[in-house]
């Protein structure tokens, strides 16, 4: 067995981590679909899905079986190639972004120099999923939804990047592990509260969750860009939304809430608890807030959030220069 050199064994071990993270993330996203419906039910004074399995815990399986056995229909007026490609982009770009999340000191896929920028690159590419999906469907509602998504995502990505520059300046690195290490004593949510707020808004908008879900507004657009999708292709878009939610929560935990740092409990548990709390916040936002008008969403992004992030960056830069004028 000359193949099993130490280097190969190490690579195999890394593969095991990668597979475990990939599966874990997918399963988490699938479970989230049910958790969300149960929690929404709780907050709206009803039960939610509670029939399949104990407390509705097997609803995921029921949904999966239903989706698998539905007819996979491609409309005759659709652009077949792009229609099939779009859900794949939706899933792949989000799954690739999980690469940079450091779960614990030992667990994580890639330790990139450019860390957080990789997420922005993937977020930029994930826009195409919706754009192509909406256009290839050959449906006016889908096209309108796709147009709304692209305009909204482009606007919110502008200050999404800017809102994190304060964190990057304080940590002195784009690398996620360096950023976590810099929060050993003080979580960045305290000195970077403005950055945290704006990144949260941008995160909700980029994953187009309520209250920023105008692209898929049922009342106006009959579900927007994925109206023509059925079966597993719809499932990929649907799961992609929850993957996005999970990703943004994990990024907020890593960037603002100290990652795996915390007393007593093991690192992974801290990471999981913080992520879960943010996911519940995401769902609570959907339960509590109405959907604002589309042009108000755009105005809020450009006229409130963008100036706020610029002020935040200015103040952070000034503070860093005042405290450590020499720099390095």
């Amino acid at each position: 067995m000359s193949m099993l050199t130490p280097a190969a064994l190490e690579a195999l071990d890394a593969m095991r981590h990668v597979l475990a993270i990939l599966l874990g993330v997918m399963v988490m996203a699938a479970i989230l679909t049910v958790v969300e419906r149960r929690l929404l039910g709780l907050w709206q004074d009803r039960y939610g899905p509670n029939r399949v399995g104990p407390f509705g815990s097997l609803q995921v399986v029921a949904d999966l079986i239903k989706m698998l056995f539905k007819e996979d229909w491609i409309p005759p007026f659709a652009d077949r190639f792009l229609f099939v490609l779009a859900p794949a982009i939706a899933m792949a770009s989000l799954l690739l972004s999980f690469m940079i999340v450091p779960f614990t000191p030992a667990w994580g896929v890639a330790d990139l120099h450019v860390g957080i920028l990789f997420f922005f690159a993937m977020a930029g590419i994930s826009v195409y999923a919706v754009l192509f999906g909406g256009w290839a469907s050959g449906n006016k509602y889908a096209l309108l939804g796709a147009m709304r998504v692209s305009a909204q995502t482009l606007s919110y990505e502008v200050f999404m990047g800017l809102s994190l520059m304060g964190v990057v300046a304080m940590a002195g690195s784009f690398n996620m592990r360096d950023i976590v290490a810099a929060q050993q004593n003080l979580w960045f949510i305290v000195p970077q509260f403005l950055g945290f707020c704006t990144f949260l808004f941008a995160g909700v908008a980029v994953t187009h969750r309520a209250p920023f879900d105008q692209p898929e507004a049922e009342q106006e657009l009959a579900d927007g860009y994925h109206i023509e999708y059925s079966s597993l292709k719809f499932g990929m878009f649907f799961l992609g939304e929850y993957l996005g939610m999970l990703l943004v929560s994990m990024l907020i935990v890593t960037l603002f809430l100290g990652g795996w740092h915390g007393p007593w409990l093991p690192p992974f548990l801290w990471f999981a608890i913080k992520t879960a709390a943010l996911l519940v916040l995401f769902i609570l936002l959907r339960a509590a807030l109405p959907r604002p008008r589309y042009d108000r969403v755009m105005q809020f992004g450009w006229k409130v959030c963008l100036p706020l992030t610029l002020i935040n960056l200015l103040l952070t830069g000034a503070a860093i220069l005042l405290i450590a004028p020499a720099g390095n």
Partner: peptide, 11 residues
């Protein structure tokens, strides 16, 4: 390029 400018083109 891929994430911003081309999105506008496609748009």
């Amino acid at each position: 390029y891929a994430g911003a400018i081309m999105v506008l083109f496609v748009f």
